[in-house]
Design a protein around this nucleic acid. Sequence first.
DNA 1: GCCGTTTTCGGCCCGACTGTTTTCAGTCG
Length: 572
Amino acid sequence: MRNTELAQIFREIALYLEMQGIQFKPRAYEKVAYALEALEEPVAELYKRGGIKELRNIPGVGQAIAEKIEEIIQTGKLKYYEELKKETPVDVRGLTAIEGVGAKSVKVLYETLGVKEVSDLEQAARAGKIRGLPHFGEKMEQKILKGIEFLKQGSGRFPLGSVFPLILEIEGRLRSLPEVEAVAVAGSVRRRKETVGDADLLAISSKPGSIMDYFTSMPEVTHVYGKGMTKTMVKLKNGMDVDLRVVPGESFGAALSYFTGSKDHNVALRRIAQEKGLKLNEYGLFRGERRIAGETEEEIYRALGLLYIPPELRENQGEIEAAKKGELPDLVEYGELRGDLQIQTTWTDGANSIEEMAEEARRLGLEYIAITDHTKSLAMTGGSDEKKLLKQMEAIDKINRTLKGIRILKGAEVNINKDGTLDIKDEALKKLDVVGVAVHSHFNLSRKEMTERIIRAMRNPHADILFHPTGRVIQKREPYDVDMDAIIKTAKETGTVLEVDAYPDRLDLKDEHIRKAVEAGVKLVIDSDAHSVNHIRFLEFGVAQARRGWAKKSDVLNTRPLREFLKGLKDN
DNA sequence: GCCGTTTTCGGCCCGACTGTTTTCAGTCG
Ligand SMILES: Nc1nc2c(ncn2[C@H]2C[C@H](O)[C@@H](COP(=O)(O)OP(=O)(O)OP(=O)(O)O)O2)c(=O)[nH]1
Ligand SMILES: [Mg+2]
Ligand SMILES: [Mg+2]
Ligand SMILES: [Zn+2]
């Protein structure tokens, strides 16, 4: 069973318990659900390795829940859960997915009207049966119908890159309002999570009313969930929700900290404040009535005895402990990349020529790029064979002779065959400056076969970089089944560099794998995988993921000047 | 149900917005 499925079970248990009005226990199950989702390694593997004891190392998992996980792994079922379901046979997850419907509402709806699933609720609401219920009314009935409509449209989460420009635009509009002193993007967008559930914006002002009016009347707004003097929530045409909070200047840091999250990070900070006899909320850090910090995030962290924690790390994944000990990594910075090692051109499926890509890269401040067009077994892209590669090398030599301010490296994105051999001969690979290897076919091999296949490719002395190591495409294609620990180990052994493909729907390696690679001392590169000049700026999304993976500048080879970069590749 | 260099029992983050509310619960961030 996948971690996410396991998490769903515990989340459902939390909801059932909440329905019964039980205090705190639901939080415990919810916390575990979240922890399981954040876990990259399948829980079953973890259990195989160390049994109950290993499970209890998961934060929030104690003896009782560890035993429940064990039961699920061993039998595929959980008695406790089955009994809760039998007792109240309703689709809690579906029903509570409706905006405004929580556990308590589900209970009332089931007990009075026998509502078991969303379609029952829709019928009841249409028939006007909701309004008469205790603690429900006509408005609630309408809200439920609206909520069901939204649920059916089902927008879900958005890849960060797909909504980032719109979010920045809205941020800019708010900034230009005369009442607004400052604006900041917060939430998962500021943490640069690979997908975001909504956009969270913070504004500083002492006159929030007109800002909220402006915000709810923006042309993209299709629905207003709620509107107050400090918080307003809307839905946009594209299905994305935007939350806006407005606070006074003296609370800017506290509000930014609160609104950046993550929730777990916030809770952890607030507990530290409690232990110190303080109170932390979005308005400041307080000793009694007195605000002792709040204008900047730095001062809040300092007052809590912590180093400043960069937003990308705020996932409660060990950053608070590290900040307490003064051991936070010095993360790779935006703008520190000097090169881009994966670029496609019109020689295969790219939209721009070598020159155009080079000129744009130079304009963006890069010092070198590698041209890495696809190779022959990707027939549909017109992939290069050895002959075409040689021709392209000559073309690059010629451009390098005249082009100033940037160096073009000769490369290729070489296919890894099913058996782990490469589809370009070694004699040709030898002539290239940078060889990227990648899986583009036979995605459905067993974990063992796929792992062996990739490891064999990495053992090729010419294979410098493993491109997009897991092959996932966000919300489109699952990663192929591969043992990433083995890949990381092999990378370390062979000196093969692992890529962070910054293309917004790849982001591969992803944050958690980056962190493992960094811990193992594996070298990384961050590449745009650009297929047109507009894509080179995607590099910054890759830097963001690298930061989320705790990567330092020294972990990222293409922060180095060209000569040192080349020395970092395995055959140099 | 979990958790602990002040605790193995007694706490568990804290606040905004809405609706039906006579004093606040539910839901959400
Ligand atoms: N203290 C506290 N803060 C919360 C809680 N829920 C949310 N927040 C804060 C932290 C979140 O990052 C921020 C924005 O809430 P969101 O629901 O939009 O979450 P976030 O943006 O982190 O993730 P998302 O991608 O939108 O699902 O509000 C909570 O229960 N307690
Ligand atoms: Mg958010
Ligand atoms: Mg939000
Ligand atoms: Zn590729």
